[in-house]
Amino acid sequence: MDNLERLLKESWVLVEDSRDRLVSHFYSRLFLDQPGLRNLFPAQMAPQHDRLLEALVTTIQIVGDPERFDTTLRALGRDHRRFHLRDEHFDAVGEALLDALASVAGKHWNDEYQQAWAGAYAAIADRMRAGAAEATEPAFWNAEVLTHERRGRDLAVITCRPLLDRLDYRAGQHVSVEVPRFLPRVWRTYAIANAPTDDNVLEFHVRVPRESWVSAALVRRTKPGHLLRLAAPTGAMTLNRDSSRDILCVAGGVGIAPIKALVQEVARYNRTRWVHVFYGARRWDDLYGLAEFQQLLSDYPWLSVVPVCSKDPDFTGEQGQVSEVFTRFGPWTEHDCFVAGSGPMVRATLGALAADGVPPEQIRYDSFGDY
């Protein structure tokens, strides 16, 4: 393990059990140093707390992968143009972050940790600035909701279309979404559930997890004709068309959304690659996405889908956690692997893939919020 990666992970252990304190200290220091920044954030800061933690954890996870680190942070810089950030804002964020880490870690913090995080943040800021400077597309897109279909009490499938400029993205990526009618300045990230289309329609699968105001607004209050705002697409869970390896996809809950987009993309050019999808949920009724795959299964003989239930004794198919069930069908060492779902599900699946001996460069995954 690279020394920088080791120091970041070691020091994160000191603060990860005090996340609320870390985030509260960070924003208190940031708004003290840059009062004008407060107007860029929502009145209620709880959703923003989660976004900061997700960004920190993601940075630690990818710092050992230079290509992914560069791609992810440049995309994040393009995405953050919607906040109208300036150079002095990047400096203030770095100072507030280092101060928060040192304060929460207390006596266990040392100069090595301080220098590691200072270096990591400098690299992050440089790449975000570069990504923002390179961007030619809009900072965000206004999009009209076309359809809104409820798939249960707390889940909806929504389609929308940008009104003016085309939003170009790759299957497997995600965008941040704002619902300005109900929650101005509050954004949440969602995977795009379809491969790019000529008519530029985007599909999202939205479930309402605990304390997600944007998801609740999208599922329970949004209607066709309403406007959304979509930020620049990000994410590296995309296909390598030059690869000839077969494909493994492991999805939990609405993590099936980006997997569906990937399968649709494969269908446009595939002639030789087998695609194996393992799709898990607690109960059979929660496997709402199976309907999306029925036509794909009938059209493409190279596709297989294995549904998995973890808490449904009446289910006659595969029982257990999807992160464990897929291992029974391995080995997967010669496959390109894609994983999408909740944080615990993704971590368990990555552990299983590592135990199976799958090389890290053959694995792409995405985890944001509660799928």
Rank of each mutant, 00 (worst) to 15 (best):
D2M: 14
K9D: 11
V13K: 10
S18G: 12
S18C: 10
S24K: 15
L32K: 14
L37Y: 04
F41A: 06
Q44I: 04
A46C: 03
L53H: 07
E54C: 08
A55M: 13
T58R: 13
T58A: 08
R78V: 03
R82Q: 01
R86W: 00
D87W: 07
A92H: 13
A96I: 01
A102E: 14
Q115R: 15
A132Q: 06
T136H: 11
H148F: 04
D154M: 12
R161C: 04
P162A: 09
P162I: 05
A171D: 05
V177W: 00
V186L: 14
V186Q: 03
Y190G: 05
I192T: 00
N194W: 02
D198I: 03
D198Q: 06
V201N: 03
V208S: 12
S212R: 01
R220G: 12
H226R: 05
L230P: 01
T234F: 07
M237T: 06
N240W: 12
D242G: 12
G255F: 08
A257P: 01
P258S: 02
V263Q: 07
E265Q: 15
V277I: 12
F278W: 00
G280W: 04
D286S: 12
L287D: 05
Q294D: 06
L297C: 05
V306H: 00
K311R: 10
P313I: 11
D314K: 04
Q319F: 08
G320H: 04
Q321A: 13
F329C: 01
P331D: 01
F338P: 11
A348G: 12
T349S: 10
T349P: 07
G351S: 15
L353A: 08
A355V: 02
D356V: 01
P360C: 11
I363D: 03
G369L: 06
